[in-house]
Nucleic acid binder design. Sequence first.
DNA 1: TATGAATGAGTATTCATTCAT
DNA 2: CATGAATGAATACTCATTCAT
Lengths: 195, 195, 195, 195
Amino acid sequence: MPKVVDREQYRKELLNGCIELFAHKGYGSITMRQIAEGLKVSTGTLYHYFDSKEAIFMQLVQELCEQDISRFFAQAPKAETLEARLQAIMNFVLANIQYYQQQMMLWIDFFQQTRSGSDEEVNFLRQVWNRSRDTIIDYLQLQDPTVAEFLIIFIDGLILQCIYNRGIEDTDWYQSHSQLMIQMILSYEQLSAQT
Amino acid sequence: MPKVVDREQYRKELLNGCIELFAHKGYGSITMRQIAEGLKVSTGTLYHYFDSKEAIFMQLVQELCEQDISRFFAQAPKAETLEARLQAIMNFVLANIQYYQQQMMLWIDFFQQTRSGSDEEVNFLRQVWNRSRDTIIDYLQLQDPTVAEFLIIFIDGLILQCIYNRGIEDTDWYQSHSQLMIQMILSYEQLSAQT
Amino acid sequence: MPKVVDREQYRKELLNGCIELFAHKGYGSITMRQIAEGLKVSTGTLYHYFDSKEAIFMQLVQELCEQDISRFFAQAPKAETLEARLQAIMNFVLANIQYYQQQMMLWIDFFQQTRSGSDEEVNFLRQVWNRSRDTIIDYLQLQDPTVAEFLIIFIDGLILQCIYNRGIEDTDWYQSHSQLMIQMILSYEQLSAQT
Amino acid sequence: MPKVVDREQYRKELLNGCIELFAHKGYGSITMRQIAEGLKVSTGTLYHYFDSKEAIFMQLVQELCEQDISRFFAQAPKAETLEARLQAIMNFVLANIQYYQQQMMLWIDFFQQTRSGSDEEVNFLRQVWNRSRDTIIDYLQLQDPTVAEFLIIFIDGLILQCIYNRGIEDTDWYQSHSQLMIQMILSYEQLSAQT
DNA sequence: TATGAATGAGTATTCATTCAT
DNA sequence: CATGAATGAATACTCATTCAT
């Protein structure tokens, strides 16, 4: 077991290792022992780097969001038209649909666990989530942020459906609904512009 | 502890008692003991009527769905226009938003718990869920069922947002997005009809 | 494993079984698993009868005190003279010296554990202890309760010495100090009576 | 973290730092990490100077006893009469009552922890304790050491009572029992001298 | 039919100690 | 000398389920 040099660096490595562990089993179902085994460290070491299971989760959420945003910008085209930007977003979500499914399940699972939990954590999560939302709003450059929010709501619904259906092998289904949404927004924007 | 004559009848009574217990604590967090106490029976009795915690949940889901549908029809106006029917649905969801939040959380919580569970259960749930979906599609009388499904996706997203925000006191937020969706669908239908 | 008929009866049996377990290892060192094994029940059963390790201890202390007092009266002579009564007490303590050592260690061990604990428990213990003290004061029939308290302090010191010396095989040592104390009290009472 | 020249010197400094840490939390409750933090060193350093937690305790006890004795002589009057010497002792104990409470709790806590421990440690502790006892016996200059031992037993009882009552704010209580004891010893000595 | 006592593997977390750097 | 990362067995306590009564 190599002695760690950069504590912060190693903590992030562990965190990255957690992602798929949490995603695979869920916050409530995975045990600290399983996490430790998955990371190939002892439970003691795990607790050396994180105060608690909850703490791991919180940091994980933040990390995921961070990665999410930078991954999107790394790949998002500098699209000129609204349609192109909408397409970019929908394609990005589809491309990472499994990732978003996992994240959403994690999210809600945690909400369940902390049902009567402190507001502090909930607020922290909300804050992280808002960052994602604002990023999308900014990218779309819509005059009315309501429409951007509208899109986000729909995307969430779409991801949820994928969860219900345990992953989509059926990309067409996703695509057709995406196109429908894009068209609707475009029409709506056109109409708004005219009046 | 009513001395039971009709086994089936009593089972349903117990099930009804479970609804708020599951909703309040969540599938993963509530214990069989708590359920038994909440129903004012012994754990033994609980196991006499249900095979397992999971079995309770499955039957509960079915029961909820049943109640859901009949409640909707008991209240839904025999609306002539599509707009009126859309309004009816959105209003109905809003009126029962807390109920739907709880149900959705229950739902996903169960998905988490049974992640590596048998497909049998998942299929059962999917079947139940399809009943709800088909009911809405029928009610809307749209030529293109895709649009109905589109609406359902959006509603799910809407409920999810309410969960993230831990209940909406902000009815306006919900209303404005509802209206946006209704208008979009109406426009889209109009355009489709023209071509 | 016989199914228990009288819950309260069985709880007391378990409690009695705990006495020597706690005495042998001490409150802080014994584990719930060890207690369960010692009682030949599962940990689950242990928790079925007692809320927590602390709860076991509290009930144990009370039970011990109760037994202590009734044992004393069952054996204490209806002594006419003060000297006889003092002798009776000192003899009783000597006869049960191991028991008192164990109890005292348990006592202090618990004080350690709950150092920053709730006052509730401490008060409960104090109350139990006061019962023992008052019993002795009553029995001695001294005009001045201070002298009775004085004796109790000394007895506590005596027990403590036995702990330091890990049990006395040397009964003479105990006896000589007992006699010294008895003489001192008698002289003091005589003098008080004269003036 | 002073760069150390004299290893022995530094060890004593650390030991002194431990006193209040052990006293505050108790032998069983304090962790090596807490001790290290309290001393502002790493656990590694702690283990560099002491073999184990137990070793720290043993050395601490010795150190405390040493300090105890020298503190007493630094302050004790060269009293001519027995009464004055008895007063001196009782006053000294009262003045340091909190200290003695802590020490006694530490003592017994350790006895608990090492219940089934090797005799070696117990003997070491007994030796240290005997030094204190002999010092008192010497100081009192009584012909019969039994009486001195008798006093010590009583003092231990007195300290124990203070523990049970979690510190005495009630100095009077202590004083009255002290005077009672002093008088008793004086009377006894007088009588012994006469015969 | 109804009860609730019994089970024991499983949970998050702690801690004295070791040892590579 | 000094550090603190690493260990893993141990802790109190939980819980779905079974089964004798």
